[in-house]
Amino acid sequence: MNFQQLSALRPDLAFIAHWINPRTKVLDLGCGDGVMLDYLQSDKQCSGYGIEIDDKEIPLCIKRGVSVIQRDLEAGLAIFADNAFDTVLCLSALQMMKDVEGVLRDISRVGREAIVSFPNFAYWPHRIALLRGRMPVSKSLPYEWYDTPNLRCATIKDFEELANEVGLEVVERVALSDGEPVSFLPNWRGSLAVFRLRKKQ
């Protein structure tokens, strides 16, 4: 898979891919169909593993030649040694974790750098929905309150605090809207929060 194919398929991932150096070791937590690792392996000669729990994604990963391990994120992280990876990806998965803090601590344990993304709860359509007295339902939060897999709702400002607490410093912080970075009022206008983090020395 080349960059153009990735951009067409997943513009958000294409944006993030720039932050990952060629020939590095990558762990992708909640790797889905494995498209990101597929791209990183074929275009950037990276290596690594994907962790995914969903039965229907596993054969898709296998077809892409991605080394996928079917475990939940907590158990999946536990099998890796300290500093085993150059970069740990946790893209649009953190909000589904029960123990977000524990997962973040483990991410900072196994990786030197981490890239974490999650739907920004402070995105303006979400704020308007709440002002109207309703829980937001949008492209980035497509579920009703009673059937959502998203256990944790956070804003860009919220996350930065927790990242600092678990020993990660923010290298870059970007709000994306349809895969494009938003620089003006990011905590209002960005639907996806993306953090590039580094382990504190």
Binding site: I62, S67, V68, I69, Q70, R71, F80
Partner: peptide, 21 residues
């Protein structure tokens, strides 16, 4: 199987693991 996956990961081997419910 987890024990085998763990040992293979420790050795940096290419390993795919599926746990069928």
């Amino acid at each position: 199987s987890h024990e085998m996956v763990q040992a293979l990961v420790n050795n940096n081997r290419t390993v795919t693991y599926a746990e069928i419910d």
